[in-house]
Design a binder for these strands. Structure first.
Lengths: 151, 151
DNA sequence: TGCAAATATATGTACATACATTTAATGTCA
DNA sequence: TGACATTAAATGTATGTACATATATTTGCA
């Protein structure tokens, strides 16, 4: 369905404004689908995202600063997302011995196993009836990258 | 900057996963810019969005159900966003006489003037050095619309 | 050495999101 | 008509986002 029909606004000021609204709408649509996929595993999208970064570092630890640097949304509050993961025993937090201001965050065995079981379901992979083919995906990636080249 | 560099992840499982992450990242980037633009006017993005819908209805009222139907993020909580706008005297809320379960929400004169003054700044318009030209914008819109055609 | 600046993280507050539940009004149909 | 379902909105709770401020540690340099 075209964005005009999705939000029942037949006319946009210009193609520029329409692309912006379309982008935010589509991202929200995607977020909802992802959140629903993670829910059976008791994870939110930001929690999953942080777990994935920690696995990338494993067995080395990550600091909060590293997580923020690698997160999709850089302004979100990594500290509190780690709180939730720690409560669920999916990560550990220990004071960094080399720099006692920093905190070493590590994914646990349970965390690694949870990631594996999520990925085994295949919900993160493209399927045969994906609406965009590989070439279109590449085109989309290029347009998005280019869009952010301002200032 | 390419998404690989933005989030310092050199390899993605596939173009599909990369497009998803790119989309969410770019939407977040855009949201931050928009939020910063609205901030001097004391509005958040969802508040601005609802005001714009109300202007589209004006002088007719809108119900909460209509707002949800037209909002970008359909699962957000329109009731409480209207609370904030009402506190700022930008909208009014009255019980709908025809159906006393429903609430008639109307944009006030102050609300209309605020929207005008925001739009006068031109922050919502494309400028000469926009990275994507009109044709590329159209291409992006088509890809996004197509992406959502699942199930 | 000692003290200010910088760094790393945590905490506070307002707002938004996601989803379940509640309250009130209206519809329906036996 | 009266019980029950449906509808419209508000409210509760957990989480996340955005941004300011606080706390503790380390660094730099006079």
């Amino acid at each position: 369905m075209r964005i005009e029909d999705e939000i029942k606004q037949p006319i946009f000021r210009n193609e520029y404004q329409k692309a912006h609204i379309n982008l935010i709408y589509t991202a929200g649509w995607l977020q909802l689908r992802q959140a629903a996929a993670f829910k059976p595993f008791g994870l939110t999208s930001p929690q999953f995202n942080i777990l994935r970064i920690l696995r990338g570092q494993h067995p080395l630890p990550a600091t909060v600063a590293l997580l923020i640097d690698r997160m999709l949304d850089k302004t979100s509050n990594a500290s509190r997302i780690v709180d939730r993961l720690e409560e669920k025993k999916l990560v550990t937090r220990t004071v960094c011995p080399a720099n006692r201001r920093a905190v070493d965050i590590r994914i646990t065995k349970a965390g690694l196993e949870l990631l594996d079981s999520i990925e085994e379901t295949g919900i993160l992979d493209a399927n045969e009836n994906a609406p965009l083919n590989e070439d279109e995906m590449r085109q989309l990636n290029d347009l998005l990258d280019k869009m952010r080249t301002v200032e």
